[in-house]
Simulated assay, not measured.
Amino acid sequence: MNDNQSPQPLNLLASLPSETVSPEQIYHLVGEDGLTRLISAFYQQVPQDDILAPMYPEADLAGAERRLRDFLIFRFGGPSHYIEQRGHPRLRMRHALFPIDQSARNRWVSLMEHAIDQAAFPAPVATALRAFFRDVATFLINRA
C-alpha cells in the first residue's frame, strides 16, 4: 500500500471495549475515508453557525477542512502529510487569533459530536474521538 491509500478499517472493534481505543489507533480502525467523512460532516455545519462561521473565512473554508483532516489523520496514527506541509501543529499558537471562549468551545464540540454521530463510527471509536475533541477544545480556550 502506498502513502496515498487509506488502510481498510480493521474488523477488531467488536472485541474492543471503548477504553482500549487510543487516539493513535483511530486511523487504523476507520481509515482516511472515515476521518474524511467526519471532517466533511463537521464543516457542512460551520457556515450556518452564528458563533463559528465568523472564525472561518468563506474563501478558506475548504483549506481549513483540508488542514484539520490532514492534522487528524496524522494525530490518529496515519501518514504525516500535515507535519511535512505545515510543521509542528502548534495548536495554541495557530488558534491564538481566534476568540475561543467557553461558548465557542462548547459550540465547536457540539458540532463535532454531531459530525461523529453522522459518521456512524463504532462506539469505541466515537467514545475516543469525543474525549479527544473535548480535551483539545478546552485546551484551546484563550478568552474569558
Rank of each mutant, 00 (worst) to 15 (best):
L68I: 12
L72A: 06
D33I: 05
L52D: 07
I26W: 09
R69A: 07
G77I: 09
H81N: 14
D50Y: 11
F42R: 02
A96M: 14
L38I: 01
P57T: 11
Q48K: 12
Q44M: 03
D60A: 13
G87M: 01
R67Y: 04
G77C: 10
L38V: 01
D50W: 08
Q102W: 09
S103P: 03
G34Y: 05
P54K: 08
Y56L: 09
M93R: 14
H28K: 13
Q44R: 08
E84H: 13
S40L: 03
Q48H: 13
E32W: 08
E19P: 00
L29N: 10
D49T: 06
G87Y: 04
G78C: 06
Y56S: 08
Q48R: 12
F98H: 13
V21D: 07
G77F: 12
H88Q: 12
V21F: 09
E32P: 02
G34W: 01
L68C: 03
L91P: 01
M93E: 14
Q25T: 09
R90A: 11
S22V: 10
D101L: 03
Y56T: 11
A41H: 00
H95A: 11
A96E: 12
E19K: 09
M93C: 04
G87N: 04
G87S: 08
P79K: 10
G78K: 08
S80R: 14
R94N: 06
E58A: 15
F71L: 07
A62V: 14
L61Y: 01
G87C: 03
A53W: 05
R37Q: 13
G31F: 12
H81V: 13
A59Q: 15
P23W: 09
L52P: 10
T36P: 00
P17I: 05
A96D: 13
F76I: 06
P23E: 08
P99C: 06
E65V: 01
L29M: 09
P99A: 10
D60E: 14
H81R: 15
I100Y: 06
A53N: 13
G63V: 04
Y43L: 01
I51P: 04
G63A: 11
F71R: 05
E65I: 00
A41L: 00
L29T: 11
R37K: 15
A41P: 00
V30Y: 04
S40G: 13
P99Q: 07
D33K: 14
I26N: 07
P57F: 10
R69Y: 07
D60W: 04
S80C: 07
D101F: 03
F76Y: 06
E32Y: 11
G77L: 10
G77K: 10
L61G: 03
A62K: 15
G63W: 02
R92N: 05
V46M: 05
A53F: 06
R37L: 09
I51H: 06
S40W: 00
R66Q: 15
E24H: 08
L52C: 10
R94T: 02
E58H: 12
P17W: 08
H95F: 12
F76D: 01
A96V: 13
V30L: 04
R94Q: 05
Q85W: 06
G31P: 12
A59F: 02
Q48Y: 09
V46T: 06
M55A: 14
S40D: 15
V30P: 04
